[in-house]
Write a protein that binds this DNA or RNA. Structure first.
Lengths: 180, 180
DNA sequence: TCCTGCTATGCAACGAGTTGCATAGGCAAT
DNA sequence: ATTGCCTATGCAACTCGTTGCATAGCAGGA
C-alpha cells in the first residue's frame, strides 16, 4: 500500500484537510494515484495516530471546522525510507483492452461508440495538461527542483495521452476495417 | 469487477484449467489484466456455479488431474452484455510518479538506480513484444478478426513501452540535472 | 420556498485482492 | 538422498477499496 506515501507527498507540497486532499486526488494527483475520501480519512487518522503527520483544528465561518494536516518529521523519514525501496510491480487493469479482444466473439462495431467516447475524454485531458503546462511551466522560467520534478511527471502524462490518442485512432481504424 | 470478463475472453480464445489461466495471466493477458491464482480459482468456481462456463475433468499421468473450463452460452451472453456497457474509469496506481514527486523532499539522485532498473525492464518488455509481433503477425499475412484485434492491442503495448522508455530518459536527464 | 449542491467528516457493511500456508506426486540437479 | 522446482488446487485470515448512508450549515437558482 502506498496511499500513505502519496498523501505524505501531497502534504509536503501543501498542507491540507482530508477534504482538500480528496479533491487533490480527484484532480492533479489522481492522474497517477486515485483514492476516495473514505480511504483518505481512514489513512489520515492512522497516520496521525502513528505520528507521521500533525493535525491542527481550524475554525471556519460559514462552514464546518476542518483539521489541517501537515507532514511531521517521522513522516518525512518514512517517505525517505520508502524512496529507497524498489517500486512494487504495478497491477494493470486495462478494461478497454479486454473489451477489444472480447469484440472478436461478438460484433466489433458495438465498440466503436465507446472507443470514440474514450478518444474524446483523452483529447480533453491532453488539452487540460497542455494548458496546465503553459500556466505552471512557461518556457524559459527558472524552476526549482520540486517544479522540475512536477514538470517531468506532467510531461509523462502528456506523452501518455498523445500515445493513447494515436492508439485509439488505430483501434478505430481496425474496428472499421472489420465492420465491412 | 471485470475479472470474470477477462477470464471469459481468455477461455473463448482457448479453453484451459485454472492453473493454465493463471499462467496466461502472468504472461500475455497480464499485460492488461493481472490476477493471482487465488482470485482465478475463486472466480472460476463461481462462474461454473452460475453456468457461465463448463468444466471437464481431465486425468493426466505424472501430474494431478485438472479441470478444463470452457465458455458456455450464458457466459457468452454475459460477455456480449458487458461489451455494450461503458468502460468504468480505470484506477491509476503509478508508484514511480509518486516517488519522482517525493524526490523533491529528499535526494533526487537516490532515484536514479531505480529509474534505470525500470528502463531496462521496459526495454526488455518492448523487445519481447516486438519479437512476438514478428512471430504472430508477420507482414503481409492474412489475419482473421480475432488476430487483428489481438494485434491492435499488442501495438498499443508496443507504443506504450516506446513512450515509457522515452519518458524514463527524460526523467533520468532531469534527475541528473538536479544532481549537479 | 424548495431543491440542489458544496464543504467537511464519518460509520457500517460489503466485496475485491493479497499472503501464507497446505497437499501431493513427479522431475532434475546436487 | 536431499533439496528445490513444477503442476494443480484449495483454505483461512487479512487488508484494501468501494458503496451507501448520515450529519449539518450555508449558498444559489427555479
Amino acid at each position: 500500500m502506498a496511499l500513505e506515501h502519496a498523501i505524505l507527498v501531497s502534504l509536503l507540497e501543501q498542507p491540507g484537510s482530508g477534504y482538500e486532499l480528496a479533491r487533490r486526488f480527484d484532480r492533479s494527483i489522481g492522474r497517477f494515484w486515485t483514492a476516495t475520501h473514505q480511504q483518505i480519512y481512514r489513512v489520515l487518522r492512522r497516520m496521525e495516530a502513528d505520528g507521521w503527520i500533525a493535525a491542527e483544528e481550524v475554525a471556519q465561518d460559514g462552514r464546518p471546522d476542518k483539521k489541517v494536516y501537515s507532514a511531521a518529521a517521522p513522516g518525512r523519514a518514512v517517505l525517505a525510507g520508502w524512496l529507497r525501496e524498489p517500486v512494487e510491480p504495478e497491477t494493470v487493469r486495462h478494461e478497454l483492452a479486454v473489451k477489444i479482444r472480447a469484440a472478436a466473439f461478438d460484433d466489433p462495431s458495438a465498440l466503436v461508440a465507446e472507443v470514440e467516447r474514450h478518444r474524446e475524454s483523452h483529447a480533453a485531458l491532453l488539452a487540460r495538461y497542455l494548458s496546465g503546462e503553459r500556466r505552471d511551466f512557461p518556457a524559459g522560467a527558472a524552476l526549482d527542483a520540486q517544479q522540475q520534478l512536477q514538470h517531468v511527471v506532467l510531461r509523462g502524462g502528456i506523452e501518455y495521452e498523445r500515445m493513447t490518442l494515436a492508439w485509439l485512432d488505430d483501434v478505430l481504424a481496425t474496428l472499421h476495417r472489420l465492420g465491412n
